[in-house]
């Protein structure tokens, strides 16, 4: 498996599960992006813009660093 292109990891999948099993499509609709973009973010294939990251954190009512982590190792 190819290494992920970003060191940014996230807990979006877990947060969706905790938010009443919100689907990727539901989240995509609320963010105004395609479902493929949500999938890419969850899989670590796309680092979202700061604005999109804040929108995601706001939807889950979490601080930004509870949703996204930057792994320096």
């Amino acid at each position: 498996m190819a290494p992920k292109p970003t060191k940014v990891t996230n807990r979006i999948r877990a947060l969706r599960a905790g938010a009443g099993n919100m689907t990727q499509a539901d989240l995509a609709r609320r963010l105004g992006v395609t479902r493929q973009t949500v999938i890419a973010i969850e899989q670590g294939r796309y680092s979202p813009s700061l604005e999109l990251a804040f929108q995601i954190a706001r939807i889950f009512q979490q601080p930004l660093d509870e949703v996204f982590r930057y792994d320096e190792t």
């Binding site: 499509a25 995509a28 609709r29 105004g32 992006v33 395609t34 479902r35 493929q36 973009t37 890419a40 796309y46 979202p48 813009s49 999109l52």
Partner: peptide
């Protein structure tokens, strides 16, 4: 057919980048 529901979002921020 499930993709039709997101027809309104043809191009998003990732596509633009």
């Amino acid at each position: 057919p499930g993709d039709e529901e997101q027809g309104a979002i043809a191009v998003d921020v990732r596509d633009r980048e």
